[in-house]
Design a protein around this nucleic acid. Structure first.
Lengths: 129, 129
DNA sequence: TTCTTTTTACGAAACTCTTCGTATATCTTA
DNA sequence: TAAGATATACGAAGAGTTTCGTAAAAAGAA
């Protein structure tokens, strides 16, 4: 039955996962308050989505106390990588380079961060030599 | 009425736009053949989606001949930028640097392309100095 | 012309996601 | 204990997307 399918989270689900990744296991109430900072939504809406996420195996509720505490079952990194792969294919036809150029060109990145990227470039190119 | 809203294309719509961007204005038949190379779908399905895209103002059909020729009204670059912005926000919480690191780390990029990125880094950092 | 193929037009079903109203249970507090 | 607040459970409506069957129009072949 539960085939552990690595599903693609929807945008709403991703918003919730972000809260869980940043704050650790949380109650529906807490997640909802966090989301309310940037979004309008009813409490039961958040609840419902989190329950569905539990059915999908994306999170797991600890039901020992009245307010269930939800824990993410997907890691941030793995999820980002999966979504990035897909996005790269559909939007940039698989060209990581094009994506990188656009991302760097259109968004401010600090000199420190640019240096970090440069280090990665060195490492990548070093491996080839 | 038609407020020229820059809508977010769905994945199916994006697939079609990719064909149009790569091949220029095309008939439904052609687009469908292209999609069929990698995907299973009925002809009328492709037609329907392209007609909806026309309603949305994403493409414009030239109806002068029997086989309508669809022309994209969105440019590839602008669309990519818009989708990238959104993706960056939702998946990487706006950190272009994190996205770039993942993209470069997990996908093969040729030394030439890496150099091109390095040039861009120089230009970006140069502007700051 | 008649038959077949190709194309567009139309509408509806199936699916997913989001949203919320309402019911029920549990806890708090007056 | 009684009243109010807070939580989960359930179900269903609404919107958007995808899919496809079928009809009608147009073109081509016999």
């Amino acid at each position: 039955m539960s085939t552990e399918h690595p599903q693609k989270p929807t945008e709403s689900e991703l918003e919730i996962l972000q809260v869980l990744w940043q704050n650790g296991p949380s109650t529906v109430r807490f997640v909802h308050e966090e989301l309310s900072k940037t979004k309008e939504a009813g409490y039961t809406t958040t609840l419902k989505i989190m329950q569905i996420m539990a059915e999908k195996g994306m999170v797991e509720p600890d039901k020992s106390s009245r307010s269930h505490v939800y824990r993410p079952l997907l890691t941030e990194e793995a999820t980002q990588r999966k979504l990035l792969d897909r996005f790269l294919d559909t939007t940039f036809r698989g060209s990581a380079m094009k994506l990188v150029m656009q991302a760097l060109g259109n968004h401010q990145t600090s000199p420190e961060e640019l240096d970090e990227i440069r280090n990665l470039l060195d490492k990548l190119e070093g491996g080839k030599k």
